[in-house]
Design a protein around this nucleic acid. Structure first.
Length: 178
DNA sequence: CGAATTTGACCGGCGC
DNA sequence: GCGCCGGTCAAATTCG
């Protein structure tokens, strides 16, 4: 994440907007499906949307930072054949850092970031065979801003709430005597 | 009891 | 080589 400067439009728009958790996903899909240029910045000010009861409240500007340039970090492993991995940084002004985007994530690490009093969390998509990663960190500069960085693309449909039904059925089978 | 999280260990790359 | 840094693993622990 050192390759793209976290340009953030700090124009103080005092209005608050409400973003459903699922809209993060649709925004991400929109961004990923479009052929974005290197280091493209999208900003959405005063974005308002409401849907269902899965809502989170945000204030002011939210911006997406797309880093399609893979040359910047040429090597991750030795002898790596230049695997191209796009990364998408998602800055959100939010009070909570758990931004549910519709996928199931398993946390696999947390590290302290220098020049930042807040730790960074590492997540991986729990879907079998899908190793999309994301990391979430909060800026100490402005502790209301949460940066979510996605790496890789999902090759499977999103987990819908109806998928929990399987789990519920399994639990019922376990706890019922017949 | 299985799945998810926590957290220190571990590992590879990089600069000195 | 050595130590730092960023990222990941995995055992222990918690959670549902």
């Amino acid at each position: 994440m050192d390759n793209y400067q976290t340009m953030f439009h700090s124009s103080s728009s005092s209005s608050s907007s409400t973003i459903p958790q699922s809209s993060h996903l649709s925004l991400l899909n929109m961004v990923m499906n479009s052929h974005a240029q290197d280091h493209q910045y999208l900003t959405m000010d005063n974005y308002t949307h409401s849907q269902g009861n899965n809502t989170a409240t945000f204030e002011g500007n939210n911006s997406i930072i797309i880093d399609m340039k893979n040359e910047t970090k040429p090597r991750k492993k030795k002898g790596d054949k230049g695997s191209k991995k796009a990364r998408y940084a998602f800055e959100t002004r939010s009070q909570v850092d758990i931004l549910d985007d519709g996928y199931r994530w398993r946390k696999y690490g947390q590290k302290a970031v220098k020049n930042n009093k807040f730790p960074r969390s590492y997540y991986r998509c729990t879907h079998q065979g899908c190793n999309v990663k994301k990391q979430v960190q909060r800026l100490s500069k402005d502790e209301e801003i949460v940066v979510t960085t996605y790496e890789g693309m999902h090759s499977h449909p999103i987990q819908t709430s109806t998928d929990n039904f399987e789990h519920i059925l399994k639990q019922m089978r376990i706890y019922s005597s017949f």
